[in-house]
Amino acid sequence: MSTRNGNFLLGFLVVVLLLAGGASYVASSQPDGLNRVAADTGIADQEQEHQLGDSPLAGYEFAGVEGILGGALAGIVGVVVTLLLGAGLFMLIRRKPAESTGRSGVHPRQRGGSGSE
């Protein structure tokens, strides 16, 4: 991976972590569109408790850590978990350099050693 690409990804990651860390501080705590309509129309009367409602991160909180810091920690953990799952999945299913056919217009890479992960 080129340095330029690496720098961009690193910068993007910093932005994502800042957003996740600051989200709970700036976010509106009002119900969202669906929850508002559900409450107004009576849909919400049928709502059931979430089966995992007791989990340590439930409701974007961080068990044992109060307030804004807890929200920031929850957001950062969520970002890391999403990134690991997402990047893992996408690295797994991506076109490997060796099997690039060039059919989609992307240049097949001639870089040998990178396919060993």
């Binding site: 993007f12 932005v15 957001g75 990134l83 799952l85 893992g88």
Partner: peptide, 12 residues
Amino acid sequence: PLAGLVAAFVFA
């Protein structure tokens, strides 16, 4: 890797 970051961005 970019797609993984996009997922994380959407989460945040």
